[in-house]
Design a protein around this nucleic acid. Sequence first.
DNA 1: CGCATAATTGAATGTTCTCAATAGGCGTGG
DNA 2: CCACGCCTATTGAGAACATTCAATTATGCG
Lengths: 219, 219
Amino acid sequence: MTFDECFSVLAGEAGICQTFSANEFLFRRGDETTGLYVVIHGSVKMMRMGPSGKDAALYVARSGDPLAEASIFSPIYHCDAIALTDASVRFYPKAALMRQFERNHRFAESYLAMLGRQLMIARTRFERVCLHSARERVLHFLTLEVDAETHSVEIPGTLKEFASELGLTHEAFYRTLAQMAKDGEIERDGNVIKLLNASTADLAPELPSSSGRKPPRRK
Amino acid sequence: MTFDECFSVLAGEAGICQTFSANEFLFRRGDETTGLYVVIHGSVKMMRMGPSGKDAALYVARSGDPLAEASIFSPIYHCDAIALTDASVRFYPKAALMRQFERNHRFAESYLAMLGRQLMIARTRFERVCLHSARERVLHFLTLEVDAETHSVEIPGTLKEFASELGLTHEAFYRTLAQMAKDGEIERDGNVIKLLNASTADLAPELPSSSGRKPPRRK
DNA sequence: CGCATAATTGAATGTTCTCAATAGGCGTGG
DNA sequence: CCACGCCTATTGAGAACATTCAATTATGCG
């Protein structure tokens, strides 16, 4: 169960649908914060443009992902949000959320859990990009994100986009994938990558899902 | 006002003091989650050890910082927490927090805001490490973290420790600082670094503080 | 069918990493 | 009080790796 599903139940029909075309801004840095978005389809990039025009994405929200979920506690946005593709989103006004927090503690708890999950995801990405070699980063990603059954993941969006999430140029990413495939570490079929050495989840179990508790696992 | 101060007021005397010696584990990956920590003094590193022994810190909590703040919504910890120095912490049991969430919506809101702040910090760090050159990373850090008055920051802990937060080896970090000082971009006095080119806050305004709203700023 | 963009590979360049070696600071124990 | 050991801070040199520029193929969309 995605956050969106869980959230929709609690928030009822409060979500307002909005659509944006590719390269359109949802909001810009410095704008007053208005509320929370949940991406229905398409993808939205959060970024800051430096003086030198250098840009690195803080976060890319895809189908089901929340957006500006932390900004609603701040008076202004600290980054730009720009649609990478045509996109539709559900919008929840800040005031409505705040009202819900006060009235419905289950809603607040759901939101707390969602923020906690996003925080763990963000820190995991940070950890990944701190690894020095391209191969280590790809392996870190695969080990954590691969499906336990099939041992494979589908990379969302384009490979080129994804490369920047690993802090790599797309060339380096292509080359690393090619090399790993040649070395027999992975198998590729388009955007689907299968990890062969079966050291799945060696680094950590999956992140908690919004649907709630998993049975505790053996130490 | 730090989160700890704000939080203590709300949580009253529920915080239990605990002390750990350097290199002692607060908890390990796979342990059942027991509650939230707030660091009083010292520093605590969150990490996962990979099969190859490769380790990159997910997060380093220092004086005033929360710890395992996201894990309380998960049945088990997803990483190890190890004291880098002798450290003392305040501990808040999970059950007490959950009870507070239900009873006191102001407490829940405070916690929401804290998680939101941590999330923005984590994403900012991610953005930083995605920059390709050492100089850009240092500049990104300085531009965002420098005090508006003095144009300087004090780097917490050792420079060596901090290098890994930038995703660099300590050698590369030392060299970059030396180079930037020679180029007249910064001035150094031990761990205090002053940014000279005065393009302060060009990238973004400071992150929101726990004490609440800042006046909105002009677009 | 043709354009725009992703995917891929090549070659050269540049930067960081790695290994090494030294200096300096701090605490402990003799 | 000083010597020793440990760790941080610092700089050097070479190797490894990613970036950059460039060119080609593949692919989806109008």
